[in-house]
Amino acid sequence: MVARIETFPDVVVEQLVYLLEPNDLFQLSLTSKTLFSIYSNASVWRSKSLHDFGNLFHIYTLFTTSTGLELYPDIQEKFEKEPTDWCRYYLSKNASVNEQEEEKLMDEADSEYAAAQAQLKQFQNDGNAAILNEVAAKMIRILDVFPAHGGCYYILAFILFVLNQLEEAVILLQMGRSVDSSFEPIDELEEEIQRILKGYGGEEDEPPLLANDTTLSAPLTEALLEIFSNFDKDKDNALNNKELGNFIYETNGSHPPPPFLRQMGQRFGSNSQGWLTKDGFLAFYLEQTLDDPSETRSDLGVHGYDPHTLKKRMEE
């Protein structure tokens, strides 16, 4: 008995899409109406395009919607919308990649990647968000011609991590791992993100620290307001320099300089006298919790609260 290829399950026949070159697929499709129908399907060419060249359309949408960064017009034009003709897209993309020398392409990609790493260090020094936009654009351009560069996924995910878009960062890290499982920094960054996400939500049966990405949970807010009230001796809903200084000393064991106390109010919220308000106190803890939830739980422990239940410990 001779098995005919068109009698195989569609899913098996479709796997050939990933293995064959376009010309070979075209020749195969001419051997039967069934194969012609399968290999003329737009979804098949979409799958082959994303398999061979990566899903930069998804990366672009994920990155821009989560960060609010506006990447350069050429990138927006290429990746804001998926192609209407996936077969034509694949053929054009395949021709452009084949025309380039792979070794030269790798050298250029590695050079751009090294430059991006240096730019991220510059961002950590001066906090200029324009650097993130430039680095992200650079990484997407590299992936456009070298989709298996795991380092690009890592840097894009790191930018999301810096901007506290943790779930989205994990998605990019997983995409990067699928193209380069040997790139160890991907695992290291994901472990750090999972540690933070676990800190937000707590262990099983622990109340979370956050209600969402921008709001402290009700149990944590209640505990923080109780702590604030304990240090607000004059009950004016603000911590003057002495009160704030006492809070910081009891929390960290050191006396802050006066300029630091003024900056706290200016940055997070102050009254007309420049003193840290109740809302400013909560804003400070929101930022700290987003950055390192373990530090917030530690602070609660210092002030007599159980870091796991967020409840006041019973006095002995």
Score class of each variant (00 low, 15 high):
residue 53 F to M: 00
residue 249 Y to I: 03
residue 191 E to N: 12
residue 185 P to V: 09
residue 152 C to A: 14
residue 50 L to Q: 01
residue 156 L to D: 00
residue 11 V to W: 05
residue 99 E to I: 02
residue 38 I to C: 04
residue 282 L to V: 00
residue 200 Y to V: 03
residue 313 R to P: 07
residue 3 A to S: 06
residue 243 E to R: 02
residue 248 I to N: 00
residue 205 D to S: 08
residue 89 Y to F: 12
residue 138 K to T: 15
residue 209 L to G: 08
residue 174 Q to N: 15
residue 119 Q to H: 12
residue 52 D to I: 08
residue 286 L to A: 05
residue 120 L to F: 07
residue 154 Y to L: 07
residue 276 L to G: 06
residue 15 Q to T: 10
residue 197 L to I: 11
residue 267 R to Q: 09
residue 305 Y to P: 08
residue 135 V to R: 15
residue 139 M to C: 13
residue 301 G to Q: 04
residue 234 D to A: 09
residue 45 W to G: 00
residue 139 M to A: 05
residue 25 L to A: 11
residue 110 D to P: 01
residue 305 Y to I: 13
residue 307 P to V: 10
residue 86 W to R: 08
residue 266 Q to I: 03
residue 127 G to A: 14
residue 66 S to G: 10
residue 39 Y to H: 00
residue 228 F to G: 14
residue 199 G to T: 00
residue 70 E to P: 06
residue 66 S to W: 05
residue 146 F to R: 14
residue 71 L to M: 11
residue 142 I to G: 04
residue 38 I to L: 09
residue 231 F to H: 11
residue 257 P to S: 11
residue 137 A to L: 06
residue 286 L to R: 00
residue 223 A to D: 04
residue 151 G to L: 07
residue 117 Q to N: 15
residue 39 Y to K: 00
residue 122 Q to H: 04
residue 238 A to V: 15
residue 84 T to C: 06
residue 273 Q to H: 11
residue 303 H to P: 08
residue 298 S to T: 13
residue 61 T to W: 08
residue 39 Y to N: 05
residue 202 G to A: 07
residue 87 C to I: 12
residue 164 N to H: 07
residue 197 L to Q: 12
residue 226 E to T: 14
residue 135 V to Y: 14
residue 30 L to D: 11
residue 26 F to L: 15
residue 281 F to S: 09
residue 106 M to H: 13
residue 49 S to K: 01
residue 282 L to P: 06
residue 284 F to Y: 14
residue 110 D to K: 09
residue 201 G to S: 11
residue 175 M to V: 10
residue 31 T to L: 06
residue 73 P to N: 08
residue 233 K to S: 13
residue 45 W to S: 06
residue 210 L to A: 08
residue 148 A to N: 14
residue 314 M to W: 09
residue 287 E to W: 00
residue 163 L to M: 12
residue 260 F to R: 15
residue 74 D to P: 04
residue 20 L to R: 05
residue 217 S to D: 06
residue 59 I to Q: 06
residue 116 A to V: 04
residue 83 P to D: 04
residue 240 N to I: 07
residue 290 L to K: 08
residue 32 S to A: 02
residue 132 L to P: 04
residue 84 T to G: 13
residue 247 F to S: 02
residue 82 E to I: 12
residue 224 L to S: 03
residue 293 P to V: 02
residue 154 Y to D: 00
residue 81 K to N: 11
residue 159 I to N: 05
residue 219 P to Y: 10
residue 233 K to G: 01
residue 14 E to R: 12
residue 85 D to C: 13
residue 30 L to F: 06
residue 35 L to W: 01
residue 4 R to N: 11
residue 68 G to P: 03
residue 165 Q to F: 01
residue 81 K to V: 05
residue 206 E to F: 08
residue 202 G to K: 01
residue 153 Y to C: 06
residue 126 D to I: 15
residue 38 I to P: 02
residue 94 N to Q: 07
residue 48 K to H: 03
residue 123 F to Q: 05
residue 2 V to P: 13
residue 91 L to S: 09
residue 297 R to E: 04
residue 38 I to S: 00
residue 179 V to H: 01
residue 89 Y to A: 02
residue 246 N to D: 14
residue 39 Y to V: 03
